[in-house]
Design a protein around this nucleic acid. Structure first.
Lengths: 357, 357
DNA sequence: TGAGATAATGAACGCGCGTACATTTTATAT
DNA sequence: ATATAAAATGTACGCGCGTTCATTATCTCA
C-alpha cells in the first residue's frame, strides 16, 4: 500500500505551516499567490491528497447522501425501472454537488434502522425509496423528523405528516389513463392494483375510481376496492409474475371486461402474457394501459400505452433539495423550508388500446 | 438537529472511563459483565451511537466499498440489466459483511480519477464496472495496481495484466450460441457486435468466429471483423437504438442472412423491431439469439433465445474477494492472493430460432 | 496470609484535518 | 517617518474514537 502523505509533509516541503496548506486546499482567507503556488507544487511533488475521512471528521460532515433501498434477498431491486431511474437521477445530482452516494439496504420489518443511519453520522442527509405506509414505518420516520434529520421520501406520500417528499401525480396520471380508455368507448374497465402498502398504489386506485365515477360507471360514493364489482378489481405486487397470476383470475371474466388499467408495466406485461395463454390477445380482445412508461412498454406487442413518470427528475430533485437542507449549514435556525413536490405524469399513447375487430 | 452523544457522556453516566465504553462497544479485552451492562444501559439511556466517521478515522478504515460506474450524462446507467444485476449482487455481499457501498461516477475520458478515489481514503476497496480497454485506462489501472490499492474489474478482462477480475465466459457462451444456430441448420449467420472497446465484445466475436470456422464457414485463419463477409458483420453500442440502426444496414442483405447472433438482448430487441418495419419477422424469416438473458428476453415475441450470464453472482463474488483482500488487514506482506475468476455462461433456448416456414 | 499472576480498568496519545486566535508582514494614510 | 489598518501566515486546539501502556483490583496457590 502506498504511504500516506499528509498535510504536514507538504507544509515542510513548501516551507509553510500546516494551516497554510489547509487554506490553499480549501481556498480560505487571503493568500499570497506565490505561497499558494509553492504549496500546490509541493503537494504535486508528494502526490498529496487530503484524507476525505479526516476532512469529514473535522468538518463534522460526511459529504455522503444516504440512499435507503428496501432490501429483499433475491429480489434484484435495481432491475426495476423505477429504482433504476430514481437512482440515476440521484447520481447525477450528487455528482454535480460534489457529494457521494452511500447505498443502504434496509430490511423492511427490521428495528429502528432509520435513525441509526443518521446517528452513525455516515450521511448528511437521506433519500428513502420504497417506504411503506405502515404504522411502524410511520413511527420510525416520525422519530427521524423529531430528531431533525434531513430526509426525503420519494414516490411516497404520507398523508397527515409533514415529511419532505418528492412524489408524482399518480392519481392524475391514473385518471387520465382511464379517461383515455373511456374516451375510446370502453366501459367495462378492470383495475390491476399493486401492493396496497405503497401510498402510490392508493393514488392509482383513486384516479381510476374517480374516472369511473365521473363516467357514471360507479356509484358516486364508491371509495374502496370493496365498492367495485369483483370482476373489475385485481391485486398484484408489481412483479411480472403477479401479472401472470392476475391473468388466471381475470380470464374467466374476460367476456365482461373490455379494457384493463394495470398499475405498472411489468404487471401489464405479465398480464398480457398470461391472457395470451388463454387466447386473449391484447389490442384485439381487450385494451390495456400500463404505468411507468418503462422501456419495456416500447417493445411489447402491441406497444403498450402507459403513463410516464419523471422518476429520473424526481431522484434528482429529491437529492438536490435534501442536500440543500442538510448542507446549507444555515445555523440560523429554521434554515430552508420543508418541501413537498408533486411532479406531473403524462399519458403516452401507443397501440395497446386500439381494438381492431 | 439532535445533540450528539459521545463516548464521554456515556462514560460519565456509567461511572467508567471512556476507554471502557470503547471496549464494550468493540468487544475488546476481558470485561466484568456487570460493567458491560452498566455501560450498555447508559448508552441506551442516552441513545448513544458511535460516530462512524470518527471510527473510520481512528481505525484508518472507511468501511466502504467503492463501486465505480461509468458516468454518461442522460444515459440512465442503472437501467441496463447488466449494471442492475451486478449492483444487486454487490449490495448483498456488502450488507452481509457489514460494509457500505459508495457509488462513484467516473466520467470516462477524465484524468486520473481512479487513484484519487483511493487516495482520498473514502473507500477501502473498489469494484470497477464498465472499464474500457483503452491505453489510458490501462495506464490508470496499472497505477492503481502499483499503488497497492485493492480493486477488481467486473466483466472485463485486460489481457497481459494481472488485475483482479471477475469475468464470465463470454467466448464460450457466444460459441455455444452460434453452435446452437449451426446445429439447427443455419449457415448464413450474422453477428451484431457491441462497442469494441469492451473486452467482452471481443470475447463474443471470438466465440462467434470459432464456431463459424469450425463449421467451415470461415477460413481457418479468419480472426478479425475484416475477415468476415461484410454482410455478416454489424456493430452497435449495446443500446436498443443501435439495434434499430443495425436493422437498416442489415435489411438489404437479409436474403443472404438466415440467422443473427446479437451481442446483447437490447440490441437484439432493437434489431427485431427495426427488421419488422421492413417486414422481416423474427422466428419466421430469420432466427435470432440474444445475450444476457435479461427479463426482456422473456417478453418479446417470439421469446428470445439468449445467453445467461451470472451477473448477480459476479457482483457478489467481486465484492467478497476484494473486501477480503482489503480488510484481512494481514499486514503479513502479500496477504491474500490475487484472483481472476471466470464464471460460466449458459444458453437459454426459447422460440426465436425455430423457423416455421 | 502473602506473593505472584491475571483480570479489569484508567490515563494519555494520536489519527489528519479545519479553524479561532495570535502574530507577523505589508500596504495605506498621514 | 510614524500610526494604523489590512493582509498573510503561524500556533494551538479539538473533533470522537481506537489503542497502548500504566495502574489497580481480584484471583490462585502455597
Amino acid at each position: 500500500m502506498a504511504e500516506i502523505v499528509t498535510r504536514k509533509e507538504v507544509a515542510e516541503l513548501a516551507g509553510v505551516s500546516e494551516a497554510t496548506v489547509s487554506r490553499v486546499f480549501n481556498d480560505v482567507g487571503p493568500m499570497k499567490e506565490q505561497t499558494r503556488q509553492r504549496v500546490l507544487q509541493a503537494a504535486k511533488t508528494l502526490n498529496y491528497h487530503p484524507n476525505a475521512i479526516a476532512q469529514s471528521f473535522a468538518r463534522r460532515r460526511s459529504g455522503n447522501l444516504g440512499v435507503v433501498l428496501p432490501y429483499v434477498p433475491k429480489v434484484h431491486i435495481f432491475s426495476t425501472y423505477y429504482f433504476s431511474e430514481v437512482l440515476s437521477g440521484i447520481g447525477e445530482q450528487v455528482k454535480a454537488s460534489g457529494n457521494d452516494m452511500l447505498l443502504k439496504f434496509r430490511v423492511p420489518g427490521e428495528e429502528s434502522d432509520y435513525s441509526s443511519i443518521f446517528r452513525s453520522q455516515k450521511v448528511d442527509a437521506c433519500v428513502i425509496l420504497g417506504a411503506t405506509d405502515t404504522p411502524s414505518e410511520r413511527a420510525e420516520l416520525k422519530k427521524l423528523e423529531d430528531g431533525g434529520f434531513p430526509f426525503c421520501l420519494i414516490n411516497q406520500h404520507m398523508s397527515g405528516e409533514r415529511f419532505n417528499e418528492v412524489d408524482a401525480d399518480h392519481e392524475g396520471g391514473s385518471y387520465r389513463a382511464v379517461r383515455h380508455l373511456l374516451d375510446l368507448g370502453y366501459r367495462d374497465i378492470a383495475f390491476l392494483s399493486g401492493s396496497p402498502e405503497y401510498s402510490n398504489s392508493g393514488d392509482r386506485l383513486r384516479g381510476y375510481m374517480q374516472a369511473m365515477r365521473e363516467a357514471g360507471l360507479l356509484p358516486a360514493d364508491a371509495k374502496t376496492p370493496g365498492d367495485l364489482p369483483a370482476h373489475l378489481y385485481y391485486e398484484g405486487n408489481y412483479s411480472r409474475t403477479s401479472g401472470i397470476k392476475a391473468a388466471s383470475a381475470m380470464h374467466p371474466h374476460l367476456n365482461r371486461i373490455e379494457a384493463v388499467f394495470a398499475s405498472n408495466d411489468r404487471m401489464a406485461i405479465g398480464l398480457m402474457q398470461g391472457l395470451r395463454e388463454y387466447g386473449h390477445v391484447p389490442g384485439r380482445d381487450y385494451a390495456i394501459v400500463g404505468y411507468d412508461d418503462s422501456e419495456a412498454a416500447r417493445v411489447t406487442d402491441p406497444p403498450l400505452t402507459s403513463v410516464a413518470v419523471p422518476f429520473y427528475e424526481m431522484g434528482r430533485l429529491a437529492a438536490e433539495r435534501v442536500l440543500r437542507r442538510a448542507g446549507g449549514g444555515n445555523e440560523t435556525g429554521g434554515a430552508s423550508e420543508g418541501f413537498r413536490l408533486k411532479l406531473d405524469t403524462k399519458l403516452v399513447v401507443r397501440q395497446s388500446c386500439r381494438i381492431l375487430r
